[in-house]
Design a binder for these strands. Structure first.
Length: 292
DNA sequence: ATGCCATACGTTGTATGA
């Protein structure tokens, strides 16, 4: 069984790229973030034609999370079960009106007897800003929800764009990484609490090396220099960790035409390897190592 | 120190992203 997560940075802009990638990698369960769609605008027929049933939780202009499955989908929960979110089309963007719990950032469903959670953490903007405080509150809510609703001995896959690097080897240069967000001790502590509860970083079970990132800024040739961050994660409970046989970030998907998402998909295989593909790391890492 | 690029919304610019 293959599990994947990808921040697509607008499913409307990326629909063809996503269709092609589903053929390329053939995941059984596929978490998406930043669909940037209202629920009514989700292209269910196109995903259905590709073999997937989809649960989507959107709000229009920003955010939006989904779970696509070809092994069934049930028990859908949105926004921590705390009620509807606000439509972001035409709503206030004032700082004092920011509330991450009024945004479409959390969706959960059961597929093939595993509880999946698709997450899109707030960006945080600047350390110490109201947006950063909101990000920490939201990450704490993830921990609270997991603690109250799940147990570490049941199969859980919690993943998505967490907007936090777990450790320094997950960022090209912690000093230069956006003035502290995504690398701060507070944000990393929030991830550590999830691990202490019973979640394991599935990618790290199979890929211990530094320098394999899932996000690169569009600007300044960051991707070509492999100056990025690993902020897209699949955290799994031990019953799932025991089944992990392979993992990779698909760097090739960051090259899509006409424009790619600024994130690459993360793939984890359970029980047996899925469809094989060249993720493009071997040549890329060799070229980067020889560059001045 | 800032822009670099890309998205949506909607219009020749603004907000957001990480």
């Amino acid at each position: 069984m293959r599990v994947a997560t990808w921040n697509v940075n607008s499913l409307k802009a990326r629909l063809e790229a996503v269709e092609k990638w589903l053929e390329r990698a053939a995941p059984d369960v596929f978490l998406m973030q930043e669909t940037k769609l209202a629920d009514d605008d989700f292209p269910h027929l196109i995903l259905q034609a590709a073999g997937y049933e989809v649960a989507h939780h959107g709000e229009g202009r920003w955010n939006g999370v989904a779970i696509a499955s070809r092994v069934g989908i049930s028990e859908v929960i949105t926004n921590f079960g705390d009620g509807p979110v606000r439509d972001s089309r035409g709503r206030s963007q004032a700082e004092e009106d920011f509330d991450p719990f009024d945004e479409a950032r959390m969706l959960s469903a059961t597929c093939a007897e595993i509880r999946f959670v698709s997450l899109y953490a707030p960006n945080g903007r600047q350390v110490g800003s109201p947006f950063f405080e909101g990000k920490l509150r939201w990450l704490a809510r993830v921990h609270e929800w997991v603690s109250e609703e799940l147990t570490p001995d049941e199969p859980v896959v919690l993943g998505g764009d967490l907007n936090v690097t777990p450790a320094d080897e997950d960022v090209w240069d912690p000093e230069k990484a956006h003035g502290g967000t995504h690398v701060s001790a507070e944000e990393r502590h929030a991830l550590a609490r999830l691990r202490e509860w019973g979640l394991v970083d599935a990618f790290r079970l199979r890929r211990p090396e530094a320098g394999r990132f899932s996000w690169w800024d569009y600007r300044a040739g960051m991707f070509q220099r492999n100056q990025g961050m690993r902020i897209d994660l699949l955290y799994v409970t031990q019953p799932v960790a025991d089944r992990v046989v392979w993992s990779e970030i698909d760097r090739e998907a960051r090259k899509g035409k006409p424009t790619p998402s600024d994130h690459a998909p993360l793939v984890v295989d359970l029980d047996e390897p899925g469809k094989s593909f060249d993720a493009g790391w071997e040549g890329a890492m060799a070229r980067i190592a020889t560059r001045k």
